[in-house]
Amino acid sequence: MIKPEQLLQALQIEFEKQSYGEHPIELYEPIRYIMSLGGKRFRPLLTLLAASIYSDDWENAIKPAMAVEVFHNFTLMHDDIMDQAPLRRGKPTVHEKWNANTAILSGDVMLIKAYDLLLDIPAEKFRRVLERFNKTAAEVCEGQQLDMNFETRWDVTEEEYLGMIRLKTSVLLGFALELGGIIGGADEESIQLLYSAGENMGIGFQLKDDLLDVYGDPDKFGKQVGGDIISNKKTFLLIEALSKADSNSKTELDKWIGLENFDKQEKVAGVTAIYEELGIRAFTEQKIQEYFTKGLSSLHALKIDERRKKPLLQFAEQLVEREK
Results as ranks from 00 to 15, higher is better:
Leu76Ile: 10
Leu111Cys: 04
Ile183Asp: 09
Leu76Asp: 02
Gln286Asp: 12
Ile257Asn: 02
Ala85Pro: 12
Lys91Ala: 11
Phe283Cys: 14
Lys135Gln: 09
Pro64Thr: 12
Thr235Ala: 06
Ile280Met: 04
Glu14Gln: 15
Leu177Asn: 01
Lys220Gln: 12
Gly216Gln: 00
Leu45Met: 13
Lys125Pro: 06
Gly227Phe: 00
Met110Lys: 01
Glu26Trp: 09
Arg281Asn: 07
Arg43Cys: 03
Met164Lys: 00
Ile31Leu: 01
Trp256Ser: 02
Ser196Ala: 14
Glu290Ile: 06
Asn261Ser: 08
Val320Asp: 03
Pro218Leu: 08
Leu302Ala: 06
Ser298Leu: 10
Leu146Lys: 12
Glu142Val: 00
Arg308His: 02
Glu240Lys: 07
Glu16Thr: 14
Ala50Pro: 08
Asn101Trp: 11
Ile239His: 05
Glu69Val: 02
Leu27Ile: 10
Lys40Gly: 08
Phe283Gln: 15
Pro311Lys: 03
Gly226Cys: 10
Ser55Leu: 10
Lys310Val: 09
Ala138Val: 13
Pro64Cys: 14
Glu260Thr: 13
Phe42Asp: 00
Glu178Ala: 02
Phe133Ile: 07
Leu130Thr: 11
Arg132Pro: 04
Glu188Ala: 14
Asp263Thr: 12
Ala245Arg: 09
Pro86Cys: 04
Thr47Ser: 10
Ile112Arg: 08
Arg89Glu: 01
Lys135Leu: 11
Leu119Ile: 09
